[in-house]
Write a protein that binds this DNA or RNA. Structure first.
Lengths: 266, 266
DNA sequence: ACTGAATTTCCATTATGTGGAACTGTGTTT
DNA sequence: AAACACAGTTCCACATAATGGAAATTCAGT
């Protein structure tokens, strides 16, 4: 059937009921203020009846919750699932000791992040001190073009691939140092390739610097990065450079462990 | 149709497609070792074709991922969603400063947890030091009967309600101090009510003690607890008791703030 | 290269989700 | 106090999307 073909093509990428449900979860999780039924109704464009049933199912599943004042908020089941997903994550488990070593060597905050599309997603961190509370960071996505780990990871790809990945990305002006366009980024990437590691000099957050190195294992389709982060005032001349030795050592050690973990798969 | 009726009755409470999908996510997230297609096939009892499509949808949605070696692992989207759900959680935001105050007053690890059914789910923590890495805890569920926060929260309910909640709970023997049955727990709960706060003397983890207080706001259907936790060797005579004043102050402050947040709802 | 197992694709059937409309409940205005 | 408007819920004929048996394909071990 031609019609069927067209249909299939047009709907390519949608995942039916599940996709709609997850879109709602996402909407609720993203909302700045708690959403009430009508808010969701307006934003989702679904008919009343349909939406109501979908939300009821989501509430029954614990993915979202209906507050006492009629507002839908993200459900605790998301936390439970993520908690287990995180603690069982092989790559994270494997990298953890090396992050600790790197932290001990530098005394600063260490991050581990995965590159996904044009974003990095933070997988783990070892903090200098609990002073500023933000282990919220884990699970967070940030643009690759303005983070040390992101740029380091991107630099392992060739320019064409980078252009493709960042095709739809809007370069946001976070600070005055943030790359404004793809050309500026690619120039930086070129230096990163020669140097072997990336800097982030207050490009994402004012007052925050870091050095980052990439972790890539092609056979595993793994592309990630680690970084050492510190407040700018603490990063004098040559300080970031001094961290590169332990940084690169840690990155290589993680790479090695990941590759070692390849063969003894059950 | 009789058959249809029976079917509907039998499936009462299930959430159709979504429920099946989430059951699979849960299975994958819970698995000790990464599961391959056949493993999931055997455990789920679904027909091949069906299961394959369900998994494909889940992968497309990013809820699970298909590893290079054919193993299904939890997807990063779970982390992203949970991260946002957590950082936007109103109760957590509101409690955070009080946790910090309590931590400053005691110098020990402070926990915030919600009671859900017969479990507590950890929502936040302020750590004494990053020495032992386990912010993994956030999102974790633990049995209420063997944790300080759990017992404190349970103690605000009457015995009948507690019995109902713990009806299906199997009392696991974590340490020699763990309550072995509901009667033992209820005796403890009685003391907790009189005392106004709960102890956990190595009942869940050997070598870990805590004092905990409940946070309850009936109008919000909120039932939670906070605790101050420390290794047993550091908890000499009267140490836990010394923490109760700031503990109870923090619990009350959080309660007050939650109630204050009631009226100015848009 | 061959064999058996694991995985993926296909498609007629039917259960499942859809959405318009009618209903209920709640709080605000005249 | 009655009337009104608006948010939320329920219902049911219908269309779509999920189902699952079986065949095709890919993969791993010899």
């Amino acid at each position: 059937m031609v019609k069927q073909m067209e249909n299939t093509a047009a709907r390519n990428g949608d995942t039916g009921t599940l996709g709609k449900a997850m879109a709602l979860v996402e909407m609720v999780a993203d909302a700045a203020a708690p959403l009430r039924f009508t808010d969701i109704l307006n934003r989702s464009g679904q008919p009343r009846g349909t939406l109501h049933r979908q939300l009821r199912h989501l509430v029954e599943e614990g993915l979202i919750e209906l507050d006492t004042d009629g507002a839908y908020v993200p459900g605790l089941r998301l936390l439970r699932l993520a908690s287990r997903a995180w603690s069982r994550n092989e790559f994270r488990q494997l990298a953890a000791p090396h992050l600790q070593v790197l932290h001990d060597a530098t005394g600063e905050t260490v991050h581990l992040a995965l590159l996904r599309g044009a974003d990095v997603i933070y997988l783990d961190k070892v903090e200098a001190r609990q002073a500023v509370r933000m282990h919220s960071l884990i699970g967070n996505a940030s643009p690759a073009y303005c983070t040390g780990v992101g740029k380091a990871a991107l630099a392992t790809l060739d320019d064409a691939e980078i252009r493709t990945r960042l095709d739809a990305v809007k370069f946001e002006h976070f600070t005055d140092s943030t790359h404004a366009d793809i050309e500026s980024l690619l120039a930086d990437v070129k230096e990163i390739r020669q140097r072997g590691f990336a800097f982030d000099l207050e490009e994402h957050q004012q007052g925050i610097c870091c050095v980052a190195a990439s972790i890539r294992v092609v056979e595993q389709n793994l592309l990630a990065g680690i970084s050492v982060t510190a407040p700018a005032y603490r990063v004098g001349e040559g300080v970031l450079e001094a961290w590169t030795a332990p940084l690169l050592a840690a990155a290589e050690a993680i790479c090695r462990d990941v590759m070692a973990g390849l063969s003894p798969r059950r």
